[in-house]
Design a protein around this nucleic acid. Structure first.
Lengths: 218, 218, 218, 218
DNA sequence: AATGAATGAGTTTTCATTCAT
DNA sequence: CATGAATGAAAACTCATTCAT
């Protein structure tokens, strides 16, 4: 069955393209990434990208969809309807942290997306984000209805979680790989450096959950 | 005083350049911004930018230093040693929110700053960022020492603040400018849309402060 | 054979580029030549030059290699092992004169090559130049061994040949293209002018050969 | 007398400009040299060059005139009417070599001038060159008239002398200062290298004179 | 399905020159 | 006399995209 092989090859090619693009977009952002670089990272001819995926913007949207969609799916899977709102919140936060841990490109991609003003957003990506937010919304509403949570702006809580988890992971990853910066801080203010390093080593999910529960629980 | 006039003109020119660059970098990010566009925004000949400031990167660093430095200084100024830690935290959050309002790229820059290996960052900018985080550090330490705050990871709190403020500002900006997106949400889930819109319209600084104080205060 | 056609087209394009570049570099020198002009001369899009050859310096090196390499090869080919040293010297000089006629910047390049620290020069070009000097070296050594030539400093003879050919070619070229200069000489010193013009019209190669043979032959 | 001081200052400024320009033109050629670089080398404001000397071309012409004019004057001084043609020729060659030795910029400047096609030549420079050539012309004519020299194309002899002397000096000077190239040759062909180095160390003037007298004397 | 070639329209950067002071 | 500021024009180089094969 040669058709199947061709199809499989095609899929592999697209996979390589998306992986390469994810990597390059994560490192350089949308405008900073060049199609040439992506093609090189994907070990694919530049024209192949246009053939299979489309232009640079289409590629970006597809990468965003994949990255954010995976996160959304991961969280949804973990949630269990028999949990209390507090338990759900803890699951939610650690779910995000875990997905992010398993899928490192998310933070930089999201960061870059924020940086570029979120100008490129497809309906699919919007739906992904809605889904992630929607889960939190339900948790908070349930908590409020049951009288265990105070009322709070869900979107801001959402942003606090995403911000802390995503960027913490990012800083953490880079702290070890780029010693120049750590050195710079060390030289400028050794005491500060020690505190920063201490902050980095702790578990984000646990700390974020703890703080949020303190903030929300009556 | 002819010399003085020349000097004054020079300063005005540099001011125009920095203002134009700040605006354009804010809208488009580093790679998205073009020197041509900056020159146009500054109403200055492109070569004048190179004459007074240097190349694109030097210009970016200078803008960053100015913006982040002013943020740092602004927050420091607002802070009053006679305030309670809680008051200081409120001042801190609203100080950041205000600056971010004036200069949207600040948040991603602040987050990436710690992460990017300082490739584009000058020591001056690093010092500015250290100062901003350092202020929060002191507030939390003071609060802990005085027994009014529980112990908490300062870096995570920092990220929660920056994350919430940064993302919020971004979404807000896109919400108004891209009605398609709002429409899209409305069609997909009208109820969700109403809630989201409600979340967006409230003040981030106030809500973030309220939540953090609930989380931190004993 | 579709692939073959593409390859052939590619070769033709590169040929056009190298020919255009050779022409423009010859007329204007390295810094005087612009890539735009070369693209125009080659009837190729500027970007095509970068695609196929690389940047200006790579293009220059390639042109040099081609021109000097061909000179070296040309001289070597003309040389016949059955010739006497005197015949070989005559062949050598006329071989250089001919190449210089086709590519004026050759002489200064050949002279500077030994001098410039090889900044622009590739190892290939250095090898080419070594070969050209090496041929002369062998001729002189053979002549000395056979007892037909007196001993002489080969490098100085090399410089005399190159110097005479190079300058002559240059003056000649300017003589025809810039009639003002000729007029100027005529006005300043008519007799001198007549002599100079007489000197210019004769064949350099023949005269240089004649003089060198008188100097070298026992 | 303040006027005198001002005038003296002016002269010093012009001197600095010409020295800087000579240096930069010698290193980079006409198109390779930038007015900025010249101003820097001369420790003078760029506009001062335009004020005192004029545009880039005028500056180049002035440098050429100075450099070549000095050489011309140096040779003329050494010549003595009571000498035999052979003695005069020896004096001529060593005079050129000596002047060049005392005034190093000549060879690179002439070389660059050749490279750029001698497109920029003023009447003054032409007169200088005429003067240098004129002296040789007289020597050769006298020799021919007296029956001691064979007839020969004076211009080509002129070029052989200039070529050998000027470029030898140049190669010599750079051989010591740029060891990379010497190393390159050494690696490529050790034997060749030894011969080349031997060639470089001998006296040009003596060898050129010896060869030319062998070529010219009946 | 996949690619090398080619390009138009940009990008960043430099440069010779002028001018007000 | 001397200079810092400013600029139009052009330089080198890049990039997203298309197309023939």
């Amino acid at each position: 069955m040669p058709q199947k092989n061709i199809a499989a090859n095609k899929d592999k090619t697209i996979r390589r393209i998306l992986d390469g693009a994810t990597k390059v977009f994560a490192e350089a952002g949308y405008s900073g990434a060049s199609v040439d670089e992506i093609a090189k990272a994907a070990k694919v001819n530049k024209a192949t990208i246009y053939y299979h995926v489309g232009d640079k913007e289409a590629l970006y949207v597809r990468v965003l969809h994949e990255v954010i969609g995976q996160t959304a799916a991961g969280i949804a899977t973990r949630m269990n309807s028999s949990m209390t709102p507090s338990q759900k919140l803890a699951t939610y936060v650690s779910g995000i942290a875990e997905t992010v841990g398993n899928y490192p490109p998310l933070p930089p991609v999201m960061m870059r997306a924020v940086e570029s003003g979120g100008q490129i957003l497809s309906p699919e990506v919007a739906a992904d984000l809605m889904m992630i937010f929607g889960i939190l919304l339900e948790i908070l509403e349930q908590g409020a209805k049951e009288g265990v949570f105070v009322k709070a702006n869900p979107f801001i809580i959402y942003l606090m979680i995403i911000g802390a988890v995503a960027f913490h992971r990012n800083v953490e990853a880079n702290w070890d790989q780029k010693p120049e910066l750590a050195m710079l801080f060390k030289q400028m203010d050794p005491e500060f450096y020690t505190k920063l390093e201490g902050s980095l080593s702790s578990s984000v999910a646990a700390e974020v959950t703890r703080l949020l529960l303190r903030a929300l629980e009556k």
